[in-house]
Design a protein around this nucleic acid. Sequence first.
DNA 1: CAACAGCCTGACGTCGCGTCAGGTGCAACC
DNA 2: GGTTGCACCTGACGCGACGTCAGGCTGTTG
Lengths: 252, 252
Amino acid sequence: MSWTVGELARLAGVTVRTLHHYDRIGLVRPSERTSAGHRSYDARDLDRLQQVLLYRELGFPLDEVATLLDDPEADPAVHLRRQHRLLRDRLERTQAMVAAVEKEMEARQMGISLTPEERFEVFGDWLPEEYAAEAEERWGDTEAWAQSQRRTAAMSKEDWQRVKAESDDVERRFAAALAAGVPADSTAAQDLAEEHRQQISRHFYDCSPEVHAGLGRMYVEDERFTAHYERVAPGLAQYVSTAVQANAARQS
Amino acid sequence: MSWTVGELARLAGVTVRTLHHYDRIGLVRPSERTSAGHRSYDARDLDRLQQVLLYRELGFPLDEVATLLDDPEADPAVHLRRQHRLLRDRLERTQAMVAAVEKEMEARQMGISLTPEERFEVFGDWLPEEYAAEAEERWGDTEAWAQSQRRTAAMSKEDWQRVKAESDDVERRFAAALAAGVPADSTAAQDLAEEHRQQISRHFYDCSPEVHAGLGRMYVEDERFTAHYERVAPGLAQYVSTAVQANAARQS
DNA sequence: CAACAGCCTGACGTCGCGTCAGGTGCAACC
DNA sequence: GGTTGCACCTGACGCGACGTCAGGCTGTTG
């Protein structure tokens, strides 16, 4: 089986020009030429092109790709494992960026502004381990934000205003309960917490009681989220946090 | 609060030259200059730079980034939502690529070769929806392959040979049981299946009985994996599949 | 006051192609 | 047998997003 440039280009999703270029620089050369001088690629050439495209996608300059692929020590399995690892890194990085954007969104909605360091930390010299651990701890349940992403992506400005109005409403009712002396672990407060949880589930992602409890902890542990609630009413951060966790406990 | 080029460059993880460039092309201009002509960036400039870097990371050419950011219709929230969606797409794409590499690894280990179309499908003109559905179905449990990735990335050639030897051993014992007339849903066959499952768990990822059952189905539904087992012994694909699913059933 | 780090503005180089321009090979249709 | 049309060929220039000097200014510290 053999392929012409055009066929291969269509197959691999690149342009003919790109294949010409790779031929010229010796990165992927067709193993044969027809009598008319046309390039003829065989299965091994496809193999190589696939490797090249993967490494390229991962950000390697072409000359480095060449030295990687021309290393006689490196059999195909080595490349697959390396690519696998690099893709995993990239996933983590992307996850961190998603988390960062979500943090910004949440912060904006609450009127909190992040520090410059926080906002750029996701760029900078990327240290995989750190983020891996943090991201996994915070966003380990990927199914959750897969959902979150799908839903929020489709939201219009009006949708967002509606969502904001809803969450403001719950906040006010929390504040009222606090003012009325309703205990944070009372059934009434837990019901509000449950409403909060279901709001998140409806608008963002499937927020399990456990995940919700985690959010609750953040409200008292991250001073900015604390400050947001404290601005609504003093003591509200702790109040909401307690109610959320009591609600999570009663559901399990 | 204000920053010099050098400070901002360090903060944002870019070079001073890049900031010069962005200034020159009008993409991110410092809102002030000192008397000496030095650039002085304020908080709003940081904001803008962050947006630029995110869009850049997502592959936008700088002039498009400029038109996006200079659109008076688009408030910050619009950008965040768009970035969020794009990052989600990228996540899916990366997941698909990871899946593709894993498929190749599995195929290689079994001595199966994939069709060119399959091998390039992950590049080509990327249609989000398709892959989203497929990838989620197959790799929905992200925790699982997060593990797989971490483990396989660290494996040496010898590790792989050992893993291969182990799995060959189980295959042979499956074949022996089949030859001896041991029923596929017998306890003995199920024990072999369980061993197989634990092997995967040890070497790749936490393979739950449900996930394992899914793999079992693939062994009879994907003709290449079927062919792999059939080459070891006729009827082995169905045999292993049945044993794996019986084992999964007994565990639940 | 000298040294040195950090800033400045050109200006040229590089990488990975895109985009013509001008020509060939070959099958199909008139 | 001509020509139309498509896919291929080889230069060659262009471009985006900086990297990398070169040559010079600034301002703080020993």
